[in-house]
């Protein structure tokens, strides 16, 4: 009885995790700019990882594999938002902007210092810069 309930729950969690990860990857591929891509990727990355590792934990049974899976879960729980935050901070420091001119706190500073030279191409980072 309890085994079949755990198997069904595990299958549901694995299926939901696969669905969230595939939708996040489609978002990563098709969204128009970097910040929306990062939003799609990091949200679904975190939830999909929890669901998949949780589904595996339900099938693992008591023992050392369960503990290792819990360790992986705790590690993903801390590192995935940290990596997302570091990525967003790095993109902001590189002055990677949205095409509409948002997403930067240094806009006023740039306008003051750039007014002597007229409007230049700082607002949108060119695509072939790397």
């Amino acid at each position: 009885m309890i085994d079949s309930v755990l198997a069904i729950l595990s299958a549901v969690m694995l299926g939901l995790g696969g669905f969230f990860m595939v939708s996040g990857a489609i978002g990563l591929l098709r969204f128009p700019d970097f910040y929306s891509r990062m939003h799609a990727a990091s949200m679904t990355d975190t939830l999909g990882s929890y669901l998949v590792v949780g589904g595996l934990m339900l099938t693992a049974g008591w023992g050392l594999p369960l503990f290792k899976l819990a360790l992986i879960l705790v590690f993903i729980f801390f590192t995935s938002p940290t990596a997302g935050h570091a990525l967003a901070k790095s993109a902001q420091h590189c002055d990677l902007r949205l095409p509409g001119g948002g997403a930067s706190t240094k806009k006023a500073d740039n306008e003051i210092s750039g007014s002597a030279q007229g409007p230049d191409s700082r607002d949108v980072v060119s695509a072939d810069r790397v």
Partner: peptide
Amino acid sequence: PTIHDRILAVNVFGTKTVLLISVIC
């Protein structure tokens, strides 16, 4: 197009590699 897109994709790839190794286990 930018280096941050590539880093983001590599981050997603690495996380999915961890999950794939667990599933293969």
